[in-house]
Design a protein around this nucleic acid. Sequence first.
DNA 1: AATAATAAGTAATAATACTTAGTTTTTAAA
DNA 2: TTTAAAAACTAAGTATTATTACTTATTATT
Lengths: 249, 249
Amino acid sequence: MTLNTSRSTFQNKTPSSVSCEVCMNKTCLIKRNLQTLSNSKFVNQKRTLQIKKGQQFIIEGAPVNGLYFVKQGKVKVFRTGINGKEHIVRFANEGEIIGHRGFGTGDSYSIGAIALEHSVLCCFSKQMLQDVLLENPRFSYDMMLFYANELNKSEAKVKSLSQMMVRERVADMLLYINRKFGSTNGFINLPLSRKEYADYTGTSDEQIIRIFSALKKEKLIIARGKKIGILNIDALKKEISAHNFFLDS
Amino acid sequence: MTLNTSRSTFQNKTPSSVSCEVCMNKTCLIKRNLQTLSNSKFVNQKRTLQIKKGQQFIIEGAPVNGLYFVKQGKVKVFRTGINGKEHIVRFANEGEIIGHRGFGTGDSYSIGAIALEHSVLCCFSKQMLQDVLLENPRFSYDMMLFYANELNKSEAKVKSLSQMMVRERVADMLLYINRKFGSTNGFINLPLSRKEYADYTGTSDEQIIRIFSALKKEKLIIARGKKIGILNIDALKKEISAHNFFLDS
DNA sequence: AATAATAAGTAATAATACTTAGTTTTTAAA
DNA sequence: TTTAAAAACTAAGTATTATTACTTATTATT
């Protein structure tokens, strides 16, 4: 895996660009505000990027140059902590926004982002977005709601890390991943390494492996290589039922 | 401590109401957008509430009726978890907003809020705020930025809970509280119970007590009843320096 | 002022999680 | 295809944290 800088990726405009008007991704916040934004040159100013599996397209600490909207594919968003240890903040699916935190705290990204599979991203520059946000209250309001939703999710995760034991967090995470990405033939649509599960859950690889091993023995999950399938979703839900919440996708 | 409902508190309009135009609180987001909002009837539609120390003014799960802006005082915002155990999401100071997460997920508050000292709050109804946000892009944009900042803070806390040991988290928290609320005569301006420190840090009372005891022995902090003072701020910072970050206030 | 309740503190024990050290399997590179 | 590297797996040992059981001090109530 080579580390491409955001800048070099930025210039990699491909002939597969699709304008926002004809894009089929209905969950995208830009798409949903297209009527409001239609008088703006804004929607013609995006760049569409093809990102290979494993490719990093946002470097932590790099200057914020824009927001990425996931047109297709899956992405993990992470922060690097002590000793280079990675913490996965969230997984992003189609229609979701990456790099949005840079709007708040200044000029650099506080996160990194890597594609988990081949992905197509639409990138809008920060300056352009700021301008159009300041012109379009409806769009601004929708962006605000997006952030409010992200904040709720983040705080649910804070609670999970504070009050759940590791096994509970693992159960919670499997339910979340399953709900967010769905399953095919009984296996969750996003194969992740044990390390990635650990980085998301805030524990070690070995702990994940140990808990998966136990869950497999207890017939709650099944594994085929990196693919994980949930066999008994109710039992998994029961693991966390005392906590009375699920992470929203 | 009696639990007043938000509704009854809501009606408790006092003669000490001050209009936004003459309010001296310069950090308030409404105040900062006053020029933009001046044509709106909006700023005359707030309610000013006097909240006693220990009084709960937001009940988790209650319908969202508005946002609270802290004119004066200090507040803790919490979520209730397993077995009624409380998790403190954050502390809020003057000029800060409470209840803002209700904008994202629907009709009820996902948090509770209690005044840590006598506090004065300005409350704007959700409907009114939505209307004015949809009319004023500058204000909407500023609200969006506020949420983006809150999201960054929340994610820093996620990272802290994932990767720091309890002692490190305690050091981090003391630095944060000290920075946010300041000190007088060598003691942090917000006396908290050991339970509250624990609820914020995501550990048990006894663990807090144990770590405070150790930090006192090592001359890093001093305690007078519930008041805590930092004696050696550099040593405290050194406890978390390997993690390369501070929680922003 | 006296009493009751709660919070702070301490020590010991139990439970949980992390780390280390290996082996086996899978994936990537040559 | 072979080899090397990385990931997955397992077990054992160590460290951290939570829980339990008290005592003491402080705060709230009567």
